[in-house]
Design a protein around this nucleic acid. Structure first.
Lengths: 188, 188
DNA sequence: CGGGAAAAGCTAATTAGATTAGCTTTATGG
DNA sequence: CCATAAAGCTAATCTAATTAGCTTTTCCCG
């Protein structure tokens, strides 16, 4: 019989796709093996265990978010940059719910975790997007964290609870973007 | 042999405590049974299954958050109310990480889910806390969602990725509170 | 007081998933 | 061509959830 000829990269990519379909929590070795047309134990030739697989998906996703955000923010500043930043992340979260969840709910394995490096690249782009606001150095950390919290919270709440209320989440997102933009512009 | 004499309430309370210790995801029937001094299958006399148990923990937690938030906000307004609101939720998230995660990551089972009712009570308190800011009705939904997103995101980021952050998260939290306070005060 | 049913436990057995051990087959570089 | 590492496979183990069916308390009611 022919051989699938898989690499670690292939396996993780398939897992990422599967995670988007069934949810990151529901990602299972059996399901993935089935998807790849191999038996479950064969997966262990490519990943150490389920934790490693999930960590790989998280890292890959964070790298991708980092690239998209970098490109979105490039050449823009101030409100434009902020809008592009937030929009890109939200869009990623909506089109890749499993991968987004992976990227943002996976614990770091240590100080040399590639997920940390990828994460830092995203933070770098956030930082770049804020450059035009003239935020004091001392406030930068807080501003970045506030923005991360906001987007992340929004993405999660929308996914879990869907915002029971009738209003369109997209409108809230725009409102929130404007809210942050004004807040960052305000004298401090 | 004597009987434990447990009720559903007891079981859920023990599960909540356990969730705070080992993490909501790691909450297991076996661990809980052990904690209660009974055999695993006996738990099924009190809860339908693991999902029911976790949902019960989530609901209980949301009810508790609702009460704490209601009390914290009572008799305050404007910035005072906002600070009390945010501080209370953050404090709950820090002292009861498992229960906080439960309350905010559990999907509703339907429109008559008691978790939804509990959730709405929390939202009611947020709404009350914002009363003093004179926010237009049309903006209220967005303001509430923005605040929920912010706190929730903050709590989750701190928990997941948390100590990567060099600066004190408490400082960021204060900064964020002030940021929101100013934003809500601003003319719109 | 006595009986009996419901409640609360228990043991045994099944099932799904993850993981490990050890064997087999395919590619492929020399 | 062939030795060998990589990529698969089957069989077996282990943990956790769940179900079935039996036993023992409780405790209400006559």
């Amino acid at each position: 019989m022919p051989r699938a000829g898989l690499s670690r990269r292939d396996v993780i990519a398939a897992a990422a796709e599967l995670a988007d379909e069934v949810g990151f929590q529901q990602l299972t070795m059996g399901l993935l093996a089935q998807r790849l047309g191999i038996r479950t134990p064969s997966l262990y030739k490519h990943v150490t265990d389920l934790a490693d697989l999930k960590h790989g998906v998280a890292t890959q996703a964070m790298i991708e978010v980092g690239e998209e955000v970098r490109d979105a923010v490039a050449g823009r500043s101030g409100r434009d940059a902020l809008t592009a930043l937030l929009g890109t992340i939200r869009s990623y979260a909506m089109t890749h719910p499993g991968q987004y969840a992976a990227a943002n709910s996976t614990r770091l394995t240590g100080p040399d975790d590639p997920l940390l490096a990828a994460s830092n690249r995203v933070i770098g782009s956030i930082s770049a997007a804020l450059r035009g606001y003239g935020i004091a150095d001392a406030d930068m950390v807080h501003a970045i964290r506030t923005i991360r919290s906001t987007i992340h919270g929004f993405a999660l709440l929308q996914e879990t609870d869907g915002f029971q209320w009738s209003a369109d989440p997209a409108d809230t997102f725009d409102w929130m973007t404007q809210f942050i933009d004004r807040g960052l512009k305000a004298d401090r």
